[in-house]
Write a protein that binds this DNA or RNA. Structure first.
Lengths: 184, 184
DNA sequence: ACCTGAACACCGTTCAAGT
DNA sequence: ACCTGAACACCGTTCAAGT
């Protein structure tokens, strides 16, 4: 059994989804592949890079075709895709957000949001401020939502975080602010 | 030298600020206090709780008197205080946000934002949506800003994240959205 | 109540050596 | 190119025993 980088990333996602981020160790992953831990370092320079690749793959797998025409509907579409992609795997939001925090990956959603805001006719500086605000909102909301979902499924009752409805309402708050600037 | 819980938390903040979160280990902290690692468990049940206490203390130390009268100015005031409190210590944003993510601490800023939005005359559901949106914005922005600041001071040039100006502009986006609902 | 000493069950990573 | 075996330098936490 000779593996390539893609196999390692795929297996990492499987371990993540089944046992959670805290169980996704290099040693555990190696065992899962029937390898010595040191063998992983032929495919990936270190754990941080592996996690960034996992984050990237999670986003890639969640990709959907663009349908919306109007810039603000496209923003909602991109954000919803991002949220759904992260929610599709256990601790997915945590992994994607951490990778983004360390400047790795998630550049794709950012450019798509930028593009949408530019199409909306916003000035460059507002495009940047708006893109960051939207990303922070989606990341923050989704991490919180996933945390609550997993806590709920583990028995803790906890108040639900709102789901897709609250998500879109938070988004609309920022979009309202942006719309008021495009025709103002 | 007999220590109490407060001493342990204070020393943890000192270690955090000087060497960063990755160096804040139970063993390192114990050594810093001249103790065996096991001694820490007389003051704190585990590391997670310690970090939550550190987060709480960071927010407490950053507390400032409320000056603003109007609800939307008070929102800005609360958010700015939160941001400044987190920026005051190395990796402070990371620690506070992680604690919040795990449902520990940071309840204080949340209730203050809720109160401000209620004073603004917003309906209950919008108060909750708005509070979460504002918190996510502040957390996301500040983690990103601190990351960039620390990267810059470590030699990596990196584009600056905007500082207080971009921070307030992101906030204003959400506030615009909220204001349009209060008189609408 | 607070602490020591020793142990348990792990980590990520490196490196010489094998095929 | 991909992997093994062994080691290095760590982790968080528990627990019996001391004062």
């Amino acid at each position: 059994m000779r593996y390539h980088r893609g196999d390692v990333v795929d297996r990492a996602i499987a371990v993540l989804d089944e046992y959670g981020l805290e169980s996704l160790t290099m040693r555990r992953l190696a065992a899962e592949l029937g390898l010595q831990p040191s063998a992983l370092y032929h495919h990936v320079p270190n754990k941080q890079t592996l996690l960034a690749a996992v984050a990237d793959e999670i986003l890639t797998r969640g990709r959907r075709p663009r349908r919306a025409r109007k810039w603000d509907r496209r923003v909602v579409e991109v954000c919803a895709e991002l949220r759904d992609a992260m929610l599709a795997y256990r601790d997915g939001a945590e992994v994607v957000v951490t990778a983004y925090t360390f400047g790795l990956g998630a550049g794709e959603p950012a450019s798509q949001l930028q593009e949408a805001l530019r199409d909306g006719g916003l000035p460059d500086d507002l495009v940047d401020v708006g893109t960051r605000a939207l990303l922070h909102l989606v990341f923050g909301h989704t991490v919180e939502e996933q945390m609550a979902l997993q806590a709920a499924s583990a028995g803790a009752i906890d108040r639900a975080p709102g789901g897709p409805a609250d998500f879109e309402r938070g988004l609309e708050l920022v979009l309202d602010g942006l719309r008021s600037k495009v025709n103002g």
